[in-house]
Design a protein around this nucleic acid. Structure first.
Lengths: 108, 108
DNA sequence: ACAAGATACTTCATCTGTCAAGGTATATTT
DNA sequence: AAATATACCTTGACAGATGAAGTATCTTGT
């Protein structure tokens, strides 16, 4: 893992909402998806992930339900809400603005 | 101020080193420069700035000295060290990598 | 002369997000 | 039987950011 988490900090919610906006999912799967999408250069740690799920559900951005697996470990699925989609749109816009500001400040 | 600080968090050191790599400066001036460069959309708070100066000096990235102003409030100037320049180069590279990872993860 | 505001630095207590470490449980592979 | 993979959860501690408060000097407007 080469990237320090402070550089991704603040994007955790955006990353999760982006994933859920493409379909319902669960913690373990999201965790693996991030590893894959980044070529194992970044991992959203489990504790961070579950903390974020609590935060996002508390805020009304996502809802959760237990899967009905008849085999294997139980899964808690998450679905994005309409408010979660709004939030996602806003967070992406904020990222784009932050990216420009940082570019202006560090000149790269 | 429209951008939440968590999006800039982790870039504070990079921003300061970028500024100092263009010449010695002092806290108040850097603070104003950031306000100007971002069109007042982002402010590096004073407490954050001075915390960062301590951290960077502790780490050997910068050195400080009191200015010899004969008028006005005293100024503590900061200069980047060779190690600070190395660090700056590394931090900029990390930012570029983080930017790609985030893009890959949120698809924008 | 006086008040207000700008310049300039500092410290402390608090908040938030991250994460190491530990735990629980089931299924599959060796 | 042991190891590995799947899957979730909690707790305590840490680091960076920041509000709030303080100190001191100089400039500007009235």
């Amino acid at each position: 893992m080469s990237i320090t988490s402070d550089l991704i900090r603040g994007h955790t919610d955006t990353i999760i909402l982006a994933h859920l906006s493409r379909g319902n999912s669960y913690g373990y799967e999201i965790n693996k998806a991030i590893l894959t999408a980044t070529g194992r250069r970044y991992e959203l740690k489990e504790a961070t992930l579950y903390t974020a799920f609590r935060r996002l559900e508390e805020a009304g951005c996502i809802v959760s339900y237990w899967g009905d697996e008849t085999t294997g470990a139980r899964r808690r699925y998450y679905a994005i809400t309409p408010y979660g989609r709004e939030t996602h749109t806003r967070l992406v816009a904020e990222w784009q603005e932050a990216r420009e500001l940082i570019a202006a400040l560090i000149g790269e």
